Simulated assay, not measured.
Amino acid sequence: MIKAMTKTQLVAAIADAMGADKKTASAALDAVAAVVSREVAAGGSVMLPGLGKMVCRERPERQVRNPATGETVTKAADKQVKFAIAKALKDSVNA
């Protein structure tokens, strides 16, 4: 199994791809993460070109079952973040 890329490795790869230093790449990555978080938390969606679309969806109140006890309880309405993979990314992975 391949290990996930760490933030340090991602920042180094971005810096290399941009031809910039790691401080600039880290600031850019942090800025993108902040904008995406703010927009999705506000109920919007963000399209990341070549990667996919991140969207926040409302989930209604529902009945759930505790697998340990079998007890059914009511779970309050909440929000869930979904990420739909772009076709271009799917095609590049499966090529």
Results as ranks from 00 to 15, higher is better:
53 K>R: 10
67 P>E: 02
35 V>N: 03
63 Q>T: 14
31 A>C: 12
71 E>W: 09
85 I>L: 13
73 V>L: 11
94 N>D: 06
13 A>R: 15
86 A>D: 03
72 T>I: 10
70 G>P: 09
51 L>N: 01
54 M>R: 07
94 N>A: 11
89 L>G: 05
78 D>M: 12
71 E>K: 14
39 E>T: 11
5 M>F: 12
14 I>R: 02
17 A>E: 09
79 K>F: 08
10 L>D: 09
84 A>C: 00
80 Q>L: 08
2 I>F: 05
40 V>C: 00
60 P>K: 11
95 A>I: 02
34 A>K: 10
73 V>D: 02
17 A>V: 03
78 D>Q: 11
44 G>V: 04
37 S>D: 14
27 A>R: 15
34 A>H: 07
71 E>G: 05
20 A>N: 07
46 V>H: 00
59 R>P: 09
8 T>M: 09
67 P>A: 01
37 S>Y: 12
25 A>L: 08
81 V>C: 00
7 K>V: 06
26 S>T: 13
1 M>T: 15
18 M>T: 07
42 A>V: 08
84 A>I: 01
27 A>G: 04
92 S>R: 07
44 G>I: 05
43 G>Y: 13
47 M>V: 13
91 D>N: 06
7 K>Q: 10
74 T>G: 01
72 T>H: 06
7 K>R: 10
39 E>M: 09
17 A>G: 13
49 P>D: 10
27 A>H: 11
2 I>G: 12
14 I>W: 04
74 T>K: 15
26 S>N: 14
84 A>L: 04
51 L>A: 07
68 A>K: 15
48 L>G: 09
85 I>V: 14
43 G>A: 11
19 G>V: 01
16 D>H: 12
65 R>M: 04
22 K>Y: 02
52 G>F: 01
67 P>T: 00
48 L>M: 13
31 A>I: 08
12 A>D: 14
2 I>K: 14
57 R>E: 09
16 D>K: 12
80 Q>M: 11
92 S>V: 07
47 M>H: 14
86 A>N: 01
40 V>R: 02
10 L>E: 07
5 M>R: 04
82 K>P: 00
56 C>R: 08
55 V>E: 14
55 V>D: 07
11 V>Y: 08
51 L>H: 03
82 K>S: 08
9 Q>A: 06
26 S>V: 04
26 S>W: 02
73 V>M: 12
93 V>M: 09
3 K>M: 11
75 K>L: 15
51 L>D: 02
68 A>M: 02
47 M>R: 14
32 V>S: 01
88 A>Y: 07
56 C>S: 13
6 T>R: 05
75 K>D: 07
52 G>L: 04
11 V>G: 12
20 A>H: 04
30 D>S: 08
17 A>K: 15
94 N>Q: 01
95 A>K: 15
20 A>F: 00
39 E>K: 14
73 V>R: 07
36 V>P: 03
12 A>L: 08
59 R>N: 12
23 K>R: 12
33 A>C: 08
88 A>F: 05
49 P>G: 12
26 S>L: 13
3 K>G: 11
66 N>H: 02
26 S>C: 07
79 K>R: 14
57 R>C: 05
78 D>T: 15
54 M>P: 08
32 V>P: 00
68 A>S: 06
3 K>T: 15
95 A>V: 01
18 M>P: 06
88 A>G: 11
40 V>A: 03
